[in-house]
Design a binder for these strands. Sequence first.
DNA 1: GCAACTGTTCTAGTATTTATAGAACAGTTG
DNA 2: CAACTGTTCTATAAATACTAGAACAGTTGC
Lengths: 116, 116
Amino acid sequence: MLIRVDPASETPIFAQVAASVRADAAAGRLRSGDRLPSARDVAASLGVNLHTVLRAYQLLRDEGLVDMRRGRGAVATDAVEPLAQLHHDIEALVARARALALSPDALAALVKEMYR
Amino acid sequence: MLIRVDPASETPIFAQVAASVRADAAAGRLRSGDRLPSARDVAASLGVNLHTVLRAYQLLRDEGLVDMRRGRGAVATDAVEPLAQLHHDIEALVARARALALSPDALAALVKEMYR
DNA sequence: GCAACTGTTCTAGTATTTATAGAACAGTTG
DNA sequence: CAACTGTTCTATAAATACTAGAACAGTTGC
């Protein structure tokens, strides 16, 4: 599993890390039972603080996407599987938004606003 | 035009104001040429600072959704019309996400992550 | 013309959030 | 037991969000 982060982005690092994991789940690259790289390893390879990565992992735990236990690490739950169902819908939406030259932030905010 | 904001939300107020306007555009409630309420009026009715509302308006201007001139106010541009094309796609996506008990923040982040 | 409106710009201060740092703790694994 | 894992704690620095007040400069309608 490769976790990517854009240092120039205005999105908080912890949110980017969580987003990277969710995207992997939606793409089918992260399956139920798969173990995430240890927070210390991710922190070292990204050049960020351990606590920043742990905050991302805890966010994913709060969303029910991972199980965390000390000693064992973070493991993807069954909840990651259904995320793949959204993949095609999101791809289609993104394609339309791109045609309109809508920014990623604007589209994301629009989706969030309509989700009630 | 009614602009709503949730004081309990973790989303910044300026982002919520901008999101409310975008949602109105996507829903067809805000059409090209329509004038937005003055920033001072919005600030007063929401109980927030003038500068906070202006920041939202300037964000919408940067996205090309509104024209702003002093004296005249903020007016929706032609760019708000195509947003209605996304309405159905987003509604469908949101319905699926709701079935999966995915949080609004998680879905929005997922969309943003896949938009590249 | 002028009064009342509009966004623009400026300085200033406070509160919250983000990210860092280091240490110690407590389970798990080989 | 050694090496790993996440957990918890205190602390600090930096960036962001929000508020506050004032003055400025166009636009509109009477």
